[in-house]
Design a protein around this nucleic acid. Structure first.
Length: 262
DNA sequence: ATGGCTCTAACATAGAGA
């Protein structure tokens, strides 16, 4: 089966891109982040028309929001509050191929990596700490499970285009990178991107809008991740970053990542 | 030090992204 994750930055603006990506990559399951729409207004019928009859949505008007589209039925869609906030940043389902799938949209963290001056950074660190505690306390490492989505941290030096410059910026600071290591250890997760691409190779999934021609200059960051526990890692077959979507007209700043499981 | 640019809500700009 092929699993995809994509921060689309508004599902309504990106429906044509979703259709093209679905046709070209043909994933069995697509996890979306930043749908920016309330659950009741999610274009579920249009997604069904693309070949994904099974749709789960945790949306919110204007901000955040996650969704799962699947060709096969799943059970027990669930989501819960993280760091005491009702943001729509998490959604979980159980897939018939016998693993739990958790989609996350981790808070971006605001402009300054300072928990005193910037409450959004405190929110981000608190959110990551809860993911660490949950991964440990729920003993996720003992069963087949995937954590995917926009984790909003580029954990390795080769996950950003200029480590020396970016290590002072939110998304790549030492404290965030340390939490990503702690999270990986807490769940025993395999970082699938780095399972297939050696850690000394650059690997990016996001090119910002604000820098002119950031994609053409390859000013990228790896913010989008697929992590799997050891019982599921045995099934890993392939991985791809679909960077061409960033060249399409009016693109999301993030590109899709797909993982193939045997 | 600030703003690049894009999107939403809702009508002119302000907030959020990272």
């Amino acid at each position: 089966m092929r699993l995809a994750t994509w921060n689309v930055n508004s599902i309504r603006t990106r429906l044509d891109h979703l259709a093209r990506f679905a046709a070209e990559a043909d994933p069995d399951v697509i996890c979306l982040q930043e749908i920016k729409v309330a659950s009741a207004s999610f274009p579920a019928e249009k997604c069904r028309a693309l070949g994904y009859p099974y749709v789960a949505v945790h949306g919110e008007k204007g901000y955040n929001g996650v969704a799962i589209l699947a060709k096969v039925p799943f059970d027990a869609a669930a989501s819960w509050s993280w760091w005491g906030k009702d943001d729509a940043r998490h959604l979980a389902v159980h897939l018939p191929e016998a693993f739990d799938l958790h989609v996350f949209y981790v808070p971006s963290g605001g402009p300054k990596p300072d928990t005193e001056a910037n409450p959004k950074f405190a929110h981000k660190l608190g959110f990551l700490d809860e993911m660490i505690a949950w991964s440990r306390d729920a003993r996720v490492a003992d069963r087949p499970l995937a954590v995917v989505g926009d984790l909003n941290v580029a954990p390795l030096e080769t996950d950003v285009w200029n480590h020396k410059q970016i290590k002072r910026q939110v998304g790549h600071t030492p404290t965030e990178c340390q939490r990503m290591s702690a999270l990986r250890e807490a769940g025993g997760y395999v970082d699938v991107g780095r399972h297939f691409v050696p850690p000394d190779w650059p690997l990016y999934t996001w090119w910002g809008y604000r820098h002119p021609q950031s994609y053409e200059k390859n000013y990228g960051w790896r913010l989008d991740h697929v992590w799997v526990t050891p019982p599921l890692a045995r099934r890993l077959r392939d991985h791809a970053v679909h960077h061409r979507t960033r060249t399409w007209a009016r693109p999301s700043d993030h590109v899709p990542v797909t993982v193939d499981l045997g």
